[in-house]
Nucleic acid binder design. Structure first.
Lengths: 155, 155
DNA sequence: TGACATTGAGCGTTGAAACACGCATCATCA
DNA sequence: TGATGATGCGTGTTTCAACGCTCAATGTCA
């Protein structure tokens, strides 16, 4: 929960590049945010990757999604989505079913139990995010999002 | 290396919060940047956590650092720094020595071989960072850093 | 000086991630 | 329709992270 987020102890930067500083700042911030969310999720017995999958499945609704669709929508790159789903299936938060038309596809659906977990988490997670960004005004958050969208972009 | 970074396939957001979108954007960007750096580092046989440690030790110079100092300076929270150092020691990139005054402390130093690895990586890493942020002007990068510094801050 | 708390480091175990591989299914085309 | 390549999933294995515990060394105070 508590994160090592030394205000201004600067990371050693051989070439003192501005863009290197930005990279480190992104990583530090991402990690700090992640640690707090992880702590919250762990109280409910799931990891952030699992939480991410559950939310993706909620977004998909009754249609469900096959493994690769889930993989492509994950926030962080993640090989081996199969086992991630295995664990969620063991916890009975998701249900898998092999397709009938294309028998290669295995569609995954959110179960009622999975929906309930998400429901219980909605408020606390939203509150946490609000708290984490409470020092930024709306327009600053928007600017932040826009700037981040430019970073790492291929085109 | 190639990252699943769908331009505008929006993450499912139950409550459509702006701050939630910011969080996801930070994580996506961090992950995308990380994946590329990891790919580069792996060509040299080290992980990003290991690279981070080596740079911290280079910054510390001849003084070296004890385990907890290293832990506190890492970009991402990381318990079990011991084993991380174990692997670096096996690769002979660092050297450890138990303190004489306070015999609880084990100071870690960068070896010449470790310095060489860093030297070989300096240019490519810097170039990669420049490329990743090439769509942002200097003042935008500065703004990004400042905004991120406000996020997750306790005070 | 002796009992006790604190700090630093290492280790054992469990669980998950990374990677490559194999198998089943489907699409394509001769 | 039969061969070939592509696609979607799952699995085996190895490596690494996470967590808690133990041990050694130091500081503290009666």
């Amino acid at each position: 929960m508590t994160v090592n987020f030394q205000p201004e102890r600067r990371q050693t930067m051989p070439r003192g590049s501005l863009r290197e500083e930005a990279t480190l700042r992104i990583w530090r911030t991402a990690s700090a945010l992640q640690d707090e969310v992880d702590a919250l999720l762990r109280e409910h017995g799931i990891s952030s990757a699992q939480y991410n999958v559950l939310r993706i499945l909620r977004g998909a609704g009754l249609t469900g999604l096959c493994r690769n669709d889930i993989r492509d929508r994950l926030v962080a790159r993640m090989p081996d989505v199969t086992r991630l789903l295995d664990r969620l299936e063991t916890m009975e938060f998701v249900r898998r079913e092999r397709g009938t038309e294309d028998r290669r596809l295995v569609t995954t659906y959110l179960t009622p139990a999975g929906e309930r977990v998400l429901m219980r988490l909605d408020a606390p997670v939203a509150a946490l995010h609000e708290r984490q960004f409470r020092h930024l005004k709306d327009h600053q958050v928007r600017t932040l999002i826009d700037l981040l969208s430019l970073a790492g972009r291929e085109a």
